[in-house]
Write a protein that binds this DNA or RNA. Structure first.
Length: 945
RNA sequence: GCCCGAGUGGCGGAAUGGCAGACGCGACGGACUCAAAAUCCGUUGUCCGCAAGGGCGUGUGGGUUCGACUCCCACCUCGGGCACCA
């Protein structure tokens, strides 16, 4: 497609027609003026960005986009969908008297930047800076009203200095399990010193300095752990659980991921699990996203139950169950093959079988073990456990359908009520005892086709001291059993989570270095604030060692390991000058995006990551939510894709809560209202080899598509490089102007819906702007051509109805219908032959948030010298919204048969009489007498026969 | 399997208990033009009919209601998330 504008100089197109060429000329001029005048600079209450405008006393709106990763390809038209929505809203908010914080930063650390650098042979710092430049230019061209003084990139040392500082706050904190808040590690030391809290590894008073250090490390919210992590040889790094797809591969690069024990940084996000679930209730997020977060955290309530072992082994087997009330039906136990008690439990007779089974299970990847459809397999250990309720001895098996990573890695099997246990019991001829009386089955489980799951009266559930016979619901059964277990020392009520602690280190180059050094004994020490940032050292060896993607036994080698002069340092950390080794990991890409909205507030603050007064103004709680719950604070509107539902959004909430607990921020949550925009889809085409071909080169001939003369297959998918169906915003701006692109993207449908891009449809909104222009400006002279006569009554009503509905639609982010209303209004003006002079200001203001460049130009032509940005948005005159007469549709038996016009204040009797008198109504009635007439005032009449 | 969404003209979509299809694309007809593009005006759910007019119509089947795209129940299809989670 040609990226040039349509009209050529030879054509007879009027010189001042609103064409792509003119639009670009206008837009470039306004971009310069906005920059020169600092039109979108937003003042803070205090600090370097405070000013005397008085704006900082206005009500505030903090409007935020999920900031982009600046890729080498630049933007395609799908990327700015959300950005344009927030820009329209931000501009509307400015015109309704708000002080608006709106800017854009760049999430520039991370794997893709590093991979792009490796491919191109250029340093990621260079490619990133270049890409950010491209993005800034493209975003500017779209007319986004960002306060550019507040823009940051996560790779700026002035930014990641504070990312490292927050890491140190997390490192120097612990979770108080009683108060359920993060507290400073100093307060833990004070509690140990005072004896009000007992250390877990020994007597605090007699511990050596090194022992005390190790005790404290066990409490820290950021800690080094030697635990199973996701090792991805194809990427050369470990990745977080959240970055592993359902089929056991990395979400970046789609490489296999293996569980391996490795020494890595973790963050104790699990301690915040309850608050991360509970506080979702305070947020205006979609139920879908809330459900995804709840699912991921995976809270389940139940009990731990301890089973004694019959064969004289002192250890007990501990299980977690959500259905302790079914304990009477536990007829065997199953341990994960990796369970630590398996060796002790295995009898000599079973040793070979158990060893063989464990080898087999180990060889399988985690993913293969998690296929629910697989036939269950297992081996008897030879030992028995004692059911604490029934006293019966039940066999202990191992099977790979039980996972070491969830609960305790062991289960009590209740085959009558659990389908997995039922299948296993059938296969290995294990007993199945009914403990509930299903309504449609006998108690003879041999006749059952499957496990019975549901509410039914308990049977066989009485051991003399616990009797569930009279219990009618599961909750009551669970409660009674938990009580009995606790009283008799066999267990207690317990809550478990699917959420694991957050794996926080990566063996890559392009990320934030850890502000941590290790002493000669390998103990981690935090570096003081004064040496931050720990700068990422320069090197041309920025690729980590990559391995065969299937080489599970390979070991990570971080690029920073290769820089001994950086790694080895001599420092005085309080014990005199000592040699230390720097941590050679870098933080995951999510670190930088965990707090960027806070830095937007105070981007130039050298002393603080954000001034508390500025944070309180922009993000502090705003009274009560609409439903009366506490307002948690946070940004007023956060727009972004649904793909971050459990990654960025969970991590950022966690960090924010830690900062809240430590008293650094006043907001409980970072993002009060979240809006997930849809994706822009586009047709993609495959040739006969299944290769994608450049969608821009495909021709349509009578419904069949051809590329290079050969037919191709069409499908629709997310716009992007991989499907070769990207459309560049620069091309669209060149052809029609940015205002047209903005309107088209927003008019395609609601912001939260995904929808296909059709380049041929763009011309529709372009024609609208052209007509709007022509209604105000003479296309030949470029001078105003307003109608001198005052707007007639009908026009005034149209204009005021438009004001009312545009306000209504913009308040609810319904840009598509707002645009439709404006088109309707403009079509009315077109029929008049132009815009009456006395409504021109109003019409231009209505368009301003949506198509700001053309609005500024028209505003200037109308004789105003200031930017339209801070003009007040029109308010509809209520008198103009009511009419003297109303047309009522008249239904006979629910079908519209006639229309009558009556005075708008006519009462029901009058309306009914007018309806009955109508001749079409009489014809439809055909002489019959209505049994009922319903009159809905202002709406309609329905005559029922 | 479980949890969310969504199914409306040729196409994108509008209407959330009260006139289904706003607005736009496309298509068709007309104006302008030597012609084309651009622009402007008009028609456009579908079927029957020359017309007036009428029948049908929001994935399928049932229900609530004077009235259902909208609410309820069951099902079908598509999209997304989770999945041997005890």
């Amino acid at each position: 497609m040609e990226a040039t504008a349509r009209p050529d100089p030879d054509s007879d197109t009027p010189a001042h027609r609103y064409s792509g060429v003119l639009a670009q000329e206008i837009e470039a001029r306004w971009h310069d003026r906005w920059d020169t005048e600092g039109t979108f600079n937003t003042p803070n209450p205090v600090g370097p960005l405070a000013d005397a405008s008085g704006f900082a006393t206005r009500p505030k709106k903090f409007i935020l986009d999920m900031f982009p990763y600046p890729s080498g390809e630049g933007l395609h038209v799908g990327h700015p969908l959300g950005f344009i929505g927030t820009d329209m809203y931000a501009r509307y908010m400015r015109m309704t008297g708000h002080n608006v914080l709106y800017t854009m930063g760049f999430d520039a650390f991370g794997l893709p930047a590093e991979q792009f650098a490796v491919q191109s042979g250029q340093h990621p710092a260079l490619t990133t800076a270049k890409n950010v430049e491209t993005y800034r230019r493209q975003l500017r061209r779209l007319g986004l009203s960002h306060d550019r003084r507040r823009s940051i990139a996560t790779t700026d040392p002035g930014y990641y200095r504070w990312t490292q500082w927050i890491f140190l706050q997390v490192f120097n904190s612990w979770f108080d399990p009683e108060r359920k808040v993060a507290r400073r590690i100093d307060e833990l030391i004070a509690e140990f010193d005072a004896g009000t809290r007992v250390a877990t590894t020994g007597d605090w008073k007699t511990m050596s300095a090194s022992e005390r250090r190790q005790e404290l490390d066990k409490w820290r919210l950021a800690y080094v752990s030697d635990a199973p992590v996701n090792w991805c040889p194809g990427l050369g790094t470990v990745v977080a659980n959240e970055e592993v797809t359902a089929d056991g591969r990395s979400d970046r690069g789609n490489f296999p991921v293996f569980k391996r024990n490795m020494r890595q940084w973790m963050m104790r996000i699990t301690t915040f699990a309850d608050r991360l679930i509970d506080d979702l209730d305070l947020l205006e997020w979609s139920d879908a996203i809330k459900a995804m977060q709840r699912n991921w955290i995976g809270r389940s309530e139940g009990a731990t139950v301890h089973f004694a072992i019959a064969e004289n082994i002192s250890e007990r087997i501990t299980v977690f169950t959500t259905r302790p009330d079914t304990l009477f039906g536990a007829t065997f136990m199953v341990l994960a093959p990796e369970h630590p008690l398996v060796d002790q439990l295995t009898t000599p007779a079973q040793a070979d079988a158990v060893a063989a089974y464990r080898r087999e299970a180990e060889a399988k990847k985690d993913f293969d073990r998690q296929d629910a459809g697989r036939e269950k397999t297992g081996v008897f250990t030879g030992s028995h456990a004692v059911n604490p309720l029934s006293g019966e001895q039940i066999p202990v098996w191992i099977a790979d359908y039980v996972l070491m990573g969830y609960g305790t890695g062991a289960i009590m099997a209740v085959p009558c009520g659990d389908q997995r246990d039922f299948e296993f019991a059938r296969k290995y001829k294990l007993p199945i005892t009914a403990i509930q009386q299903p309504p449609d089955r006998s108690l003879d489980t041999a006749t059952w086709p499957d496990a019975f799951v549901g509410d039914a009266p308990y049977v066989n559930s009485d051991n003399g001291s616990l009797n569930l016979g009279a219990v009618t619901n599961i909750n009551e059964g669970v409660r009674l059993t938990n009580e009995w277990l606790a009283k008799n020392g066999h267990g207690e009520a317990t809550i478990t989570y699917k959420l694991r602690d957050w794996l926080f280190s990566r063996q890559r180059y392009w990320g934030e270095p850890f502000p941590i050094v290790y002493d000669a004994d390998g103990n981690p020490h935090s570096l003081p604030d004064s040496v931050l940032p720990v700068a990422l050292p320069d090197t041309d060896q920025f690729s980590p060692r990559l391995f065969d993607p299937d080489d599970a036994m390979s070991n990570p080698e971080s690029p920073l390991d290769r820089l001994p002069e950086w790694v080895n340092v001599t420092l005085d950390l309080g014990d005199g000058m000592q040699p230390y080794r720097r941590d050679t990991n870098v933080m995951p890409q999510w670190a930088g995006s965990c707090w960027y909205e806070l830095r937007y507030i105070d981007p130039t603050n050298e002393n603080d990551f954000v001034d508390p007064a500025n944070e309180a103004y922009w993000m502090g709680p705003q009274g009560k939510n609409a439903d009366g719950t506490q307002h948690p604070g946070g940004v007023d509107l956060y727009v972004g894709g649904v793909e971050h539902a459990v990654l960025h959004l969970l991590y950022a909430r966690f960090w924010h809560k830690v900062l809240f607990d430590l008293g650094y921020v006043s907001s409980l949550e970072p993002y009060h209202r979240l809006f997930n925009q849809g994706y822009i889809l586009a047709a993609a085409y495959q040739d006969d080899r299944g290769m994608y071909v450049d969608a821009l080169g495909v021709e349509d001939r009578g419904g069949t598509q051809y590329y290079d003369g050969k037919p191709v297959k069409r499908e629709y998918g997310k716009m992007g490089k991989s499907l070769k169906n990207a459309v560049a915003p620069d091309d669209m701006c060149a052809q029609y102007g940015a205002d047209t692109l903005r309107l088209y993207l927003m008019s395609m449908g609601p912001l939260d819906a995904s929808r296909p891009w059709e380049s041929k449809d763009v011309v529709g909104v372009h024609r609208f702007l052209q007509r709007l222009w022509r209604n105000i400006v003479d296309e030949d002279s470029g001078e105003l051509r307003l109608l001198a006569a005052p707007a007639d009554d009908e026009t005034l009503r149209v204009v005021h109805r438009t004001i009312a509905s545009v306000r209504e639609e913009l308040d609810h982010l319904r840009f598509n219908t707002a645009i439709a209303k404006l088109i309707e209004c403009n079509n009315h003006l077109t029929k008049l032959g132009g815009c009456p002079a006395d409504v021109a200001d109003i019409v231009v203001k209505l368009v301003a948030p949506l198509a700001p460049h053309v609005a500024e130009e028209l505003w200037a032509k109308l004789g105003h010298s200031d930017s339209i940005t801070y003009e007040s948005f029109p308010v509809a005159d209520p008198a103009m919204l009511v009419t003297d007469t109303i047309e009522y549709p008249v239904q006979v038996n629910g079908k519209v048969r006639a229309r009558i016009t009556v005075a708008s204040d006519a009462d029901s009797t009058t309306v009914q009489a007018a309806a009955m008198a109508d001749e079409k109504v009489q014809a439809s009635l055909a002489g019959a007498t209505p049994s009922k007439v319903i009159v809905i005032p202002g709406r309609m009449v329905n005559i029922v026969l």
